[in-house]
Structures are given as structure tokens and as C-alpha cells.
């Protein structure tokens, strides 16, 4: 009985007793969720346009962040480093299209998926070889990102928000809006959406498939850089982030592989869900459940809705 009480009643009693803590925890979950959503977003872009399940998206985030910091360490001014990093991400997009996607066109999805493992390892190896394997500090101040925190007195206590977290949420929102605009209103954006439906349609817009691949991978690279900066400013830039980046997968499962709103909602559910789980239920089993909770949340959803939150139910044909 006691254990049932501890699982099903006590956490909620605690939430009610200290609502400020609840809000604080949810806020932290929200920020983590925004970052998961950003990784998932880069992933959705690529999946939508090329059908490739890009395992390397998490690494692209780290790689972009690392390149930025590495360039700055070599004496490049901060904003020039951002531009140069964008150039690097563009080169990666071109290289991926030339070396990996083009020769593998028409191969089964699983082969392409595995190929992105190859990209992952290449990026890790090259990144560490050039910039070293030690964690690096993000050049947040040089990029005029805010630091410090603000406190609110609410709900009978204090809620503390890191300014960088607020900035991250705002920037994420802006980027999503820009992307939405890009997809809805521009010629290239429409072509990208067309390619998701049919490759022929895209060709009729006058853009070759190869160009489209470069564009989506580059767009995903830009998203990766922004994510890398935000994430790096909160912790450090290192390849350890790779493990956390894997949490974009349960996010995608929740949101569906092709839905941008899905990625965002999924990211928030996972982010908030795992922080609440860790804070209120974690102590019951010795803590640290954050490392796997996200996957179980996604799995639970999946058992009831195999098509994800926003996906349509598909009846297989034969």
C-alpha cells in the first residue's frame, strides 16, 4: 500500500504543496523540450524531403557548435565565425548529397538510415581530430546572448528563469516561424513540399532533386547551428551531447516523422514529462530515470497510436 501511495498520491500532494517548484520544474522541462524539438525539427526537414531517417542530426548540432567555438578559438571574430560555420554546414550538405545520397538513391530506407550512421561517425572523428575531444565553452557572450537569471515571486515561492533559456525559447519560436514562412510562401519552399509528395512534381518546378537535397540538408544544418549555440550556452559543447540528442527520436515518434507541429508538441511533452518524472518519481527508484524515461513515454504512446500524435492511420496494402 505504501508503495502505491508513494507512486500515485504523494507526488501530486507535493505538486500541490509547492506549486512554485512545480512551475520551476515544468519550465526546465519546457526548455529541454524546446531543444529536443529543434533537433527533431532538423530531422523532420530531411525526412520530409528525402525520406532519409537522418541519425546524424544530433551530431550535426554538436559539430556545428564545435566548429563555431573552434573557429573563434583560432582567432576568428564571433560573427564571422558564425558565417564561416554556416559555410561549413553548406559544404557538409553538398558532400552528403554527392558522396552518400546520390550513389544510394533508390536504395531501401534502411540502407540510407545506416549510411547516416556512417556520416555520424565521420563527423565525430573529423570534429575531434580538428577541434580536440575536450568540452568547450560556447561563445555566448561574444554573440551577445544574455546570461544570468531573473526571479519571479509567485505561488508562495520563487521561480527562477535563466535568461539564456528565455532567449533560447524566443529564438526557437522565431526560427520555426521563419521556416514556416519559407515553406509556405517561397518558391523553393513550395518545391520542397512538393518533393515530399512526389519527386516528379518537384522536377516540374524546375529544381533538380539533387539541389533539393542540398537545400534541405543545409537548412537542417542551419537549424543544427542554432540548436548548437543555444544548447552549448546552457552546458558545454562536447560530443557527450550526442547521447542527449538521441532523445529527438522519441520526440519524433510522438510527433510523427513528417509533422513540424508534431516535432514541437512532441518535444515539449517529452521535455516536460521527463523533468516531472525525474523530479517527482525519480527519487523512488534512486534517480537518474531521465536517461530512459523519454523512450518509455514514446513507447507508451506508440502502443496506442502507432502512427504518432499527428500521423494519419495507414492501412497497409498488398
Amino acid at each position: 500500500m505504501d508503495i502505491l501511495y508513494k507512486i500515485f498520491v504523494d507526488p501530486f500532494v507535493q505538486m500541490g504543496a509547492a506549486p512554485d517548484l512545480l512551475v520551476q520544474t515544468m519550465w526546465e522541462g519546457l526548455v529541454a523540450g524546446v531543444l529536443y524539438a529543434l533537433i527533431a525539427l532538423g530531422f523532420v526537414l530531411i525526412f520530409k524531403a528525402s525520406g532519409v531517417f537522418n541519425f546524424a542530426q544530433g551530431i550535426m548540432v554538436v559539430f556545428a557548435g564545435l566548429t563555431l567555438v573552434g573557429l573563434h578559438e583560432m582567432g576568428v571574430p564571433a560573427f564571422l565565425a558564425v558565417i564561416l560555420t554556416l559555410g561549413v554546414m553548406f559544404l557538409i550538405a553538398v558532400a552528403v548529397e554527392r558522396v552518400v545520397l546520390r550513389p544510394l538513391v533508390n536504395q531501401p530506407d534502411i540502407i540510407l538510415f545506416m549510411a547516416t550512421f556512417g556520416i555520424t561517425y565521420l563527423l565525430i572523428g573529423i570534429g575531434e581530430l580538428i577541434f580536440g575531444g575536450n568540452p568547450k565553452r560556447m561563445i555566448a557572450k561574444e554573440l551577445y546572448l544574455p546570461s544570468g537569471s531573473v526571479e519571479f515571486q509567485t505561488l508562495g515561492g520563487f521561480v527562477q528563469l535563466q535568461k539564456i533559456d528565455i532567449a533560447a525559447s524566443v529564438i526557437a519560436a522565431i526560427m520555426i516561424a521563419v521556416l514556416a514562412f519559407f515553406f509556405q510562401k517561397t518558391r523553393i519552399g513550395r518545391a520542397l513540399r512538393a518533393v515530399a509528395d512526389s519527386h516528379k512534381a518537384a522536377l516540374s518546378v524546375g529544381i533538380s532533386l539533387n539541389q533539393i537535397w542540398v537545400i534541405v540538408w543545409f537548412t537542417a544544418g542551419i537549424v543544427a547551428l542554432v540548436t548548437g549555440i543555444m544548447w552549448g550556452a546552457r552546458s558545454d559543447v562536447s560530443f557527450a551531447l550526442q547521447i542527449i540528442a538521441l532523445k529527438a527520436l522519441p520526440v519524433l515518434i510522438l510527433g510523427g516523422f513528417t509533422s513540424v507541429p508534431g516535432a514541437i508538441v512532441g518535444g515539449l511533452i517529452i521535455g516536460i514529462g521527463e523533468k516531472l518524472g525525474e523530479f517527482y518519481w525519480g527519487p523512488l527508484v534512486g534517480g537518474g530515470i531521465e536517461s530512459w524515461l523519454a523512450y518509455f513515454i514514446a513507447l507508451g504512446f506508440l502502443l496506442f497510436r502507432p502512427q504518432g500524435l499527428f500521423g494519419e492511420k495507414i492501412i497497409e496494402r498488398i
Partner: peptide, 12 residues
């Protein structure tokens, strides 16, 4: 680091 690069390249 080289190992990562070689494994990645081999996979592709």
C-alpha cells in the same frame, strides 16, 4: 579519432 573516421567511411 582516426578510427571513427575510418569506420564511418567504411560504412558508407
Amino acid at each position: 579519432h582516426l578510427q571513427f573516421i575510418i569506420v564511418g567511411a567504411l560504412i558508407i
